[in-house]
Design a protein around this nucleic acid. Structure first.
Length: 427
RNA sequence: GUGAGUGUAGCUCAAGGGUUAGAGCACCGGACUGUGGAUCCGGUGGUUGGGGGUUCGAAUCCCCUCACUCACCCCA
């Protein structure tokens, strides 16, 4: 290490951040709520490793995708294997299904998972290099009713977390049968007007003409308006699937907008694609994205098992959620003198075993300092153990919220604290 | 990877070439030796992101670099 790096303070890696206790409370609520709701729909947690063989994503996510070509955290381990920190979760689930022959279990299979993902992107609002996703997948269910059900489930979760003013975008990206014809028609149309496109779009015309739809340049928009839409090219099966998907959304009363230019970034989607966006997130406005991937398991050499799922970005979710965190309540034990200190430790131990949060601080303080400290750190109760208390076998307990003070035995005071805690929980 | 903006105390911000870089909040202590919040007083805390240059003199001007923020590409 040279002198310069030595001087530099060590800080969190670019695009990563610490979640401090106050903020972690919100994460805990969001995660617990997601688990609770997914379980209501019959989903079960499946935890896969954070690191996977690099080829899993090259095959699954797609060798030509942006994620694989420029955003993966890849390294060679001591055994010479190429390892990648997962940039998304779906390929891991597919691998686990094949590896453990989960396809032999009664279908459909429903899984969820919450955890960190890694992409070497340039960080900006709502985008980090280590970010977190809430991910669900369903395997072995072809019925478009399930497509609508996961959208409904996503809305259920968003509503529960107080997320408002979201818009749901839906599309069908077709399948192996109908998508190539559309791609050809689109490319042809793009080439025909190439000289009217901005330099960026001229490049897109060859690589990914669908992206031209997103361009903000006026001439490009005019040109794109004349391009064919995927909806006009869907085969019979995909069109029917899309129609039924939408009719189930109508059945659930979910408002949506058909966006024929919605493609999603990943190569593997078939038929249904959807996104839930919000206006409060800046450029990265998608809080949830998902779709169907009916060919992926088979392409991995597994059984012919269709799949569908979505991923929610936890950071983005939390930035628009309105979460109330549970009230915390704890007892600060104020002791005076060495003998009382020992008594405090024993009392704290006993009360904790009975489910009451207690704090004893190992610093000699006078009574005023004890109370000042207890107030500062937000204690709801102060239990006083001093010489008088030791002599009489009766402690003092003060309710910091209303200044009421009680005198009583260990058991009596414990009962008061637990009783009040119950009242708070029920209101 | 490209572009723009911003970097001064833990946080929010002053000082815009001229003594020793300040304030509020926060933190610690005292006024107040068995009862918190208020008030008053005091204290800790900075190589002004880092390096180089111009200058008698740089937080201030110039160059480089790093970090953060936002945007592009793309995505959660």
């Amino acid at each position: 290490m040279n002198e310069e790096t030595n001087k530099k303070e060590i800080s969190a890696i670019k695009g990563t951040k610490d979640i401090l206790p106050q903020e972690a409370r919100y994460w805990q609520v969001a995660e617990a709520t997601a688990r609770q709701i997914f379980e209501l729909y019959g989903y079960r947690e499946l935890r896969a490793p954070v690191i996977e063989p690099t080829e899993l994503f090259e095959k699954g996510t797609g060798a030509s995708s942006d994620i694989v070509t420029k955003e993966m955290y890849t390294f060679v381990d001591k055994g010479g294997r190429s390892i990648t920190l997962r940039p998304e979760y779906t390929p891991s689930v597919v691998r686990a299904i094949i590896e453990h022959r989960l396809d032999l279990q009664p279908q459909p299979l429903r899984f969820y998972y919450i955890g960190p993902m890694f992409r070497y992107d340039k960080p900006q609002k709502g985008r980090y290099r280590q970010f977190h996703q809430i991910d669900i997948e369903v395997f072995g269910e072809k019925d478009p009713a399930v497509d609508a059900e996961i959208v409904e489930m996503a809305h259920h979760l968003l509503k529960k977390l107080g997320v408002e003013k979201v818009e749901t975008l839906v599309n069908s990206v077709g399948c192996k049968k109908c998508r190539p014809a559309y791609g050809q028609a689109l490319r042809q149309a793009a080439r025909a007007v190439k000289d009217r496109l901005c330099p960026d779009c001229q490049r897109k015309a060859e690589i990914n003409p669908l992206r031209i739809f997103d361009c903000k340049v006026e001439t490009c928009r005019e040109a794109a308006a004349t391009f064919p839409l995927i909806t006009e090219y869907l085969c019979e099966e995909c069109r029917t699937h899309f129609e039924q998907f939408r009719s189930y959304l109508d059945f659930y009363g979910i408002n949506y907008r058909i966006d024929p230019t919605l493609v999603r970034g990943l190569d593997y989607y078939t038929k249904t694609a959807f996104e839930i966006v919000t206006e409060h997130l800046g450029a990265q406005n998608a809080i949830c994205g998902g779709g169907r991937y009916d060919d992926m398991v088979k392409e991995f050499g597994g059984p012919d098992l269709c799949g569908i799922g979505f991923a929610m970005g936890v950071e983005r979710l939390l930035s628009v959620a309105r979460i109330t965190t549970p009230k915390e309540s704890f007892v600060y034990i104020a002791y005076l003198g060495e003998e009382a200190k020992k008594k405090s430790l024993a009392t704290a131990r006993e009360w904790r075993q009975k489910g009451v949060e207690c704090l004893v601080e190992f610093k000699d303080r006078n009574m005023k300092a004890h109370f000042s400290r207890a107030n500062k750190i937000g204690a709801d109760w102060v239990l006083i153990i001093g010489e008088n208390e030791l002599a009489r076998g009766l402690f003092q307990l003060k309710d910091m919220n209303n200044s009421q003070q009680y005198e009583g035995t260990n058991e009596e005071l414990l009962k008061i604290v637990k009783q009040k805690g119950k009242q708070d929980a029920s209101t």
